[in-house]
Amino acid sequence: MQDPASLYRLETDTAIGDLSAPTLLVALGGYLDAGHTQRLLTEHLLATLDHTVVATFDLDQLIDYRARRPMMTFAQDHWVDYADPALILYRLIDDAGSPFLLLTGPEPDYQWERLVESVLTLIKALQVELTVTVHGIPMAVPHTRPISATVHATVPELRSGTPVFGTISLPGSLAALLELRLGELGRRAVGYAVHVPHYLAQADHPAAALYGLGCAREVAGLDLPDAGLHLAVADSEHAIAAELASSADAAEIVAALERQYDARHQPADQDVPIDEAELPSADQLGAELEAFLRDVGRGN
């Protein structure tokens, strides 16, 4: 393996020891982010919190430009702009004055193990104690019920909730590989796969981003603003309500999901008849997710 440290360049004159932060949030745009959960959360943090660039990565070594061509702007008779892809490590300051790190940019196509090693080098140098990921996954749930997430972590104390899935095989991601390697090193890492209604998977779903923000805030003890996301959630709810009002078929789909959700989450002391045949098992949910990922993968 080539030197992992040569993949990045520090973009500050400040000594790296003075840039330490206990938490790293990883947001690498990959093929799966239902409801654009990760993108909305990342854009919100960068728009609302003070931040500086700590390091940039050499994407020329990591990206297949022909597989996902960057956009360029042509004006009448000449080229005027190029959307240069960038993988950047930011240092942000929360509302209480506490620092944390954000690694964001397109998920690289090449040299995953080398990039993971370079990120691990920075984690050690910046004294990161906890690495956090948040993204959305499509689920057969209605938008009218409380949001939840599948939590995965390298240590038992960071895991919570009842597992939804059994054991399944999924296409990998760089963020997942980083979490795996951190676990092998005995380091703390946690990920939140926020459950997004499958009928909203391709649209912006700010409610999922708001939920993910709350997860990151709680696990890392950060004071993260959320007013902007609350406004976006209100606008989104109005738009969804208008769409359902104009489509009886869509309204019935949501109503069926509500009945299924309520049946699965009824209190144990309530004697409500349930048709167990209508309730998906963990294996069925896993099979549906695997099929969705295969379809998405064909598009990349």
Rank of each mutant, 00 (worst) to 15 (best):
G297E: 09
A220W: 00
M72W: 03
D109F: 05
L229Q: 14
S148G: 14
Q260W: 04
T42K: 03
P99C: 04
D249V: 11
G136D: 07
A234G: 02
D271P: 04
E117I: 01
A251C: 11
R66M: 12
D94C: 10
L279N: 05
L92C: 09
A248I: 06
P156L: 05
L122N: 01
H195M: 11
T42Y: 05
E184Q: 15
D262R: 03
S173R: 11
I88R: 05
P106F: 02
E157V: 09
A15C: 08
L231T: 15
E243Q: 11
F74P: 06
P108D: 13
G286H: 06
A140G: 00
A245L: 07
G191R: 03
T104P: 08
V155E: 13
Y8A: 10
A245C: 06
P146W: 11
D223Q: 15
V151M: 04
A153M: 03
R114E: 11
F165I: 13
P225Y: 10
P146H: 06
V134P: 02
W112R: 08
L177N: 06
L229R: 10
L7M: 10
G136R: 08
Y261T: 03
T167F: 10
A255Y: 06
A248Q: 09
A208P: 11
H265E: 08
Y82G: 05
D58V: 04
T37N: 09
A55S: 11
L46F: 00
V132A: 01
Y90P: 03
D95W: 03
A34N: 07
Q202L: 10
P70Y: 10
D223M: 15
G286K: 02
A287R: 15
H265N: 14
Y8W: 15
W112Y: 05
G30V: 05
A86P: 04
A232W: 09
I137K: 01
H51A: 14
V190G: 13
R188V: 15
L178I: 01
L115Q: 05
L32G: 02
R188T: 13
L19G: 09
P108W: 14
A34E: 02
M1Q: 10
T133G: 13
A15G: 14
A291S: 12
A189S: 15
R188N: 14
I88G: 01
G183F: 12
P99E: 04
E252D: 13
A55K: 10
D3S: 08
M139G: 06
H265R: 12
H238C: 09
L170F: 13
